[in-house]
Design a protein around this nucleic acid. Structure first.
Length: 105
DNA sequence: TCTGTGACGAGCG
DNA sequence: ACGCTCGCCACAG
């Protein structure tokens, strides 16, 4: 069965968001990391898509998701300050110190 | 069906 | 370290 079937269903969206809920405060996870957690490796962009509309589904710690380089989202300006409030520190280059703050889930 | 786009990732010069 | 290219998957038009 693969006929006109949507992949990004509301159910999948909540699956992604609940995975994001498990990221402990003071830590960050990458899009690819979350994608693997839900059994969809290589679908990091799907995670980003859901996060872009996360506000529609409720309140989730979407600020704890950065890209593989530790870069915060361009369109999400509050992300850095929210992370810093939790104790996540940034390097001189403006990236999260992934060595110390990446979540190992 | 083809094409462009995106809160991505990995490689390379 | 930085920017470019390519690969990736789902979706909209």
């Amino acid at each position: 069965m693969q006929n006109g079937r949507k992949v990004l269903t509301e159910e999948l969206a909540f699956e992604i968001l609940s995975a994001i809920e498990e990221i402990p405060p003071g830590c960050v996870a990458t899009y690819g990391q979350i994608a693997r957690l839900i059994g969809r490796p290589g679908n990091a962009r799907l995670v980003g898509r859901v996060l872009s509309m996360a506000e529609f589904f409720g309140s989730y710690p979407c600020h704890r998701v950065v890209n593989s380089q530790g870069r915060t989202a361009f369109t999400f300006t509050e992300q850095r300050s929210r992370l810093e409030e939790e104790g996540v520190r940034f390097l001189e280059n403006g990236k999260v110190d992934m060595k110390h703050f990446r979540w190992d889930g």
